[in-house]
């Protein structure tokens, strides 16, 4: 079991001076993920908040090899790099005991939408890499548009609430399960409030051979329309309402739920704290809240069942 004190003694590979918003969850996630392996990491970062805010030329916040190509291809870029790494070993140009870890970091838009084919292909080919999706449930870098990871009812800049429309009308993609259907060695869903869970899962993802996928809820004060100090707290509420359960799936078979709230809170606790959902609490949108609660309850039940029986039964 690692302690925070031990973690503070590890080197920061992502440093201060980046331009991410106050209260952004990305640096918190990175702080834990980049400490979860002893080996050097090569990162392929998709276009997005993190890329833009951390590499404004001639400044950079990274102390490791980092490449950015475009929004939808971080997984295929890292598969080229990982392939070359294997080739160099085969050719004897890299010592066989050299160990490098490969990490793709992509937002929810680059994962659920434009980069899904690239990600699915890289997993299917079986490259040895970790894919980290930081899901802030919108295209935050371009101003908070709807992504297929935005939950139903979200007010975004392209699904605004108006006199006749209550925000986004479609459900969020269940990307963790979609990826798990590839039956890759490791898939996990986690959130920064539970730093230990996040760290442990990142460590497992790095240690395991073959592709691993981490879906991390990333609080975004700007697009969730919340006070910046509440961002970590909200990820905790996401777990307590079962909006964002923490679980992992190993080898496409066994599913472990890593956090079960003693007192499962109603979804209104999650909704009422964020101004992007504020309109849902109006009487005329009551049906949407009921619908959301219904789906959350079903999903949670399903997870509990799957934990008992295995995901394929």
């Amino acid at each position: 079991m690692i302690t925070l004190k031990e973690l503070t003694n590890k080197e920061d590979l992502f440093v201060s001076g980046h331009g991410l918003c106050p209260g952004c969850g990305i640096p918190v996630i990175l702080k834990l993920v980049l400490r979860a392996t002893e080996y050097p990491i090569v990162i392929s970062n998709a276009t997005g908040c993190l890329q833009v805010a951390s590499t404004e030329f001639p400044a950079t916040s990274w102390k490791l090899n980092w490449i950015h190509s475009s929004l939808g291809n971080a997984a295929s870029t890292i598969s080229g790099i990982e392939t070359m790494y294997r080739v160099l070993k085969k050719q004897g140009k890299l010592q066989t005991d050299t160990e490098i870890k490969f990490l793709a970091i992509v937002g929810d838009g680059g994962t659920n939408d434009i980069g899904l084919s690239s990600l699915s292909g890289a997993i299917e080919r079986g490259h040895d890499f970790v894919y980290l999706c930081y899901d802030n449930q919108s295209y935050a870098n371009s101003g908070g548009q709807r992504s297929s990871a935005s939950p139903i009812g979200t007010s975004t800049s392209t699904t605004p609430t108006g006199k006749v429309l209550p925000g986004k009308l479609q459900y969020k993609k269940d990307i963790t399960k979609i990826i798990a259907a590839h039956k890759l060695p490791y898939v996990a869903q986690t959130a920064p409030w539970n730093w230990e869970d996040l760290y442990t899962k990142a460590k497992k993802a790095f240690d395991i051979e073959g592709p691993a996928y981490l879906n991390v809820l990333n609080p975004c004060p700007k697009e969730w329309k919340i006070p910046s100090n509440k961002s970590i707290e909200l990820t905790r509420i996401a777990a307590d309402t079962c909006v964002w359960p923490l679980y992992e799936i190993e080898a496409g078979k066994n599913i472990n739920i890593n956090y079960k709230p003693e007192n499962k809170l109603p979804v209104t606790e999650w909704l009422k704290r964020q101004n992007r959902f504020k309109h849902l609490l109006n009487v005329e949108n009551r049906w949407i809240v009921d619908e959301i609660q219904n789906v959350i309850d079903q999903n949670w039940k399903c997870l509990l069942k799957q934990e008992k029986r295995g995901i394929n039964n």
Binding site: S69, N73, S76, I78, T83, R86, S120, G121
Partner: peptide, 26 residues
Amino acid sequence: SEFLNVDSDYSAMSACIGVAASGGRV
């Protein structure tokens, strides 16, 4: 040579970028 079958032409050029940025001939 290592032969990589990818999922699209977009991914094909992206993987080429990855290999070439790793000093490889692609």
